[in-house]
């Protein structure tokens, strides 16, 4: 399996565990056992599952298994693959810190962290679609 696929799948597994850890924090707070302002982690909990885990796993398997782009260039662009990997994970991590910081401090710079995270995630999705579109081939 290509190195990018290995990275995507292993990183996805890490997000799976991290998401459930966030879930424990959120449930612990609901149960009155954890006295920290963790509600602002709820969106990261959802998106670690939906984007960090499931989407990232799909992206890794698609890059590996979808029909070849060309014989010489089976996975189209490794470069776009790296752009997807880096922006997706940086975007998710910025969101993990940006949202709680913005909720607790209401600082403008924390708001800009969220905007940066939004842009990074959008770049990740776009780079993945560009690299994958030409590999969706009818036979």
């Amino acid at each position: 399996m290509p190195i990018l696929t290995r990275l995507w799948i292993k990183t996805a597994l890490v997000y799976f565990v991290l998401a459930l850890l966030l879930g424990i924090l959120l449930a612990g707070q609901c149960a009155g056992l954890i006295h920290l302002p963790v509600q602002s982690l709820f969106p990261s909990y959802i998106h670690f599952l939906a984007v960090g885990w499931i989407s990232q796993l799909i992206i890794g398997v698609v890059f590996w298994m979808f029909p070849k782009y060309t014989q010489a260039n089976p996975r189209r662009s490794e470069g776009l693959g790296w752009v997807t990997y880096i922006t997706l994970n940086l975007g998710l991590l910025l969101r993990l810190v940006g949202e709680p910081l913005h909720a607790t401090t209401n600082a403008a710079w924390a708001g800009w962290l969220m905007a940066a995270s939004a842009l990074l995630l959008l770049i990740a999705g776009t780079a993945f679609v560009i690299n994958t579109w030409g590999r969706v081939k009818e036979k």
Partner: peptide
């Protein structure tokens, strides 16, 4: 849409 929502929540 998600990026619009997230950016708008921040700024």
């Amino acid at each position: 849409l998600g990026a619009l929502l997230l950016a708008n929540n921040g700024v």
